[in-house]
Amino acid sequence: MKEGRIIKGIGGFYYVDDSINIYECKARGILRKNNETPMVGDKVHFSILNQEEKLGMVEEILQRKNELIRPPVVNVDQAVVVFAITQPEPNLSLLNRFLVLAEGQMLDIIICFNKIDLQQQKDYMWMVDIYEKAGYKVLLATKENSDGIEKLKRALCGKVSVFAGPSGVGKSTLLNQVQSNIHLQTGGLSTKNERGKHTTRHVELIPLNQRGWVVDTPGFSSLKIDFTEEAELQYCFPELRSLAGNCRFSSCLHENEPSCSVKKAVEDNLIAKERYESYLQLLEEIRSNRRY
């Protein structure tokens, strides 16, 4: 058997790259019987049924190091979360939700604010400050900014990166700038509601010339966080996580408890108020989900 990586899955067919060829494979029935479903990003053992036509059979799915639900992809090294500074207007609550999901999967995270040519720097740097203060790497980009594209290229080198964000923020356009032969379809905004038109119809691993892979995915507009517990949520916020153990009570959830190091950090402007309020909002959402 040979080893390869699933780079695309459509209609029950899985396209496996072994670094030399790409094989069109079906999954062995025993996998379905064992409730094992191949996913994009899976490293697999596969057999060759027809070398000339590049046909094969997925025999075994190797152990996964992580698994994302939306986008449905596995074995990812880092998440590049793209939000536009305008058109559409940034939804920081949605951004924080995706960051929580990526933190929960132990991914390295890069935030890319796109379309910076559409506003003056003073009008968007407050967002950059919030996330740099939280400890995230932030890139600024536009399709006309070669410096931003070069920084993005270097960040993607040698990594399997999920490229995600709401529709219409320019994910596909940026990827086309990173590597011109990708030729991803791009779409503008719906004039009716300023939401992005969906241009990516399936999840696919795209090989990069400078090594590494990126995942272009359909945009999303909502993200549930019911995968985590109340006490665990704080560890998905790096600025809160860094203060773990500094509160009077070891079980502190940083709400109404006295001598709370997180609330003190918010008061001292060491933690952005917007991020803290988002944490409280998500904490309440987790509780509400548990009631039903």
Results as ranks from 00 to 15, higher is better:
146 S>R: 12
212 G>N: 00
72 P>A: 14
76 V>L: 11
9 G>P: 04
152 L>A: 06
124 Y>G: 06
111 I>E: 08
38 P>A: 03
77 D>T: 01
181 N>P: 07
181 N>F: 09
37 T>F: 15
23 Y>A: 06
80 V>R: 06
203 V>H: 05
230 E>F: 05
204 E>V: 01
185 Q>C: 06
192 K>T: 13
276 Y>K: 05
4 G>V: 03
288 S>A: 15
114 N>W: 00
239 E>A: 06
228 T>Q: 08
153 K>W: 00
31 L>W: 12
230 E>A: 12
48 I>K: 01
281 Q>E: 15
262 V>R: 09
264 K>Q: 14
165 G>P: 04
246 N>I: 00
125 M>N: 12
154 R>Y: 11
26 K>Y: 14
261 S>E: 02
50 N>K: 04
220 F>R: 02
18 D>P: 03
224 K>S: 14
234 Q>V: 13
100 V>H: 08
59 E>I: 11
222 S>M: 07
162 V>C: 02
37 T>M: 14
264 K>C: 08
37 T>C: 04
209 N>R: 15
108 D>P: 02
148 G>S: 03
45 H>N: 14
186 T>P: 01
193 N>S: 04
210 Q>V: 10
229 E>D: 12
147 D>K: 14
33 K>R: 14
55 L>D: 07
214 V>A: 07
217 T>V: 09
7 I>V: 12
271 I>T: 00
189 L>W: 10
283 L>N: 08
9 G>N: 11
249 F>S: 01
255 E>F: 07
158 G>T: 02
220 F>M: 01
20 I>M: 13
173 T>W: 03
35 N>I: 08
275 R>K: 11
85 I>E: 02
53 E>N: 13
137 K>C: 07
24 E>R: 10
243 L>D: 09
61 I>D: 05
43 K>N: 15
204 E>K: 11
11 G>M: 06
89 E>R: 09
291 R>K: 14
113 F>D: 08
45 H>Q: 15
34 N>I: 02
13 F>T: 07
284 E>C: 12
137 K>E: 09
85 I>L: 12
252 C>A: 04
252 C>D: 03
107 L>D: 00
254 H>S: 10
7 I>N: 01
213 W>P: 07
55 L>I: 14
214 V>E: 06
249 F>M: 08
289 N>E: 13
41 G>D: 06
249 F>A: 07
171 K>C: 09
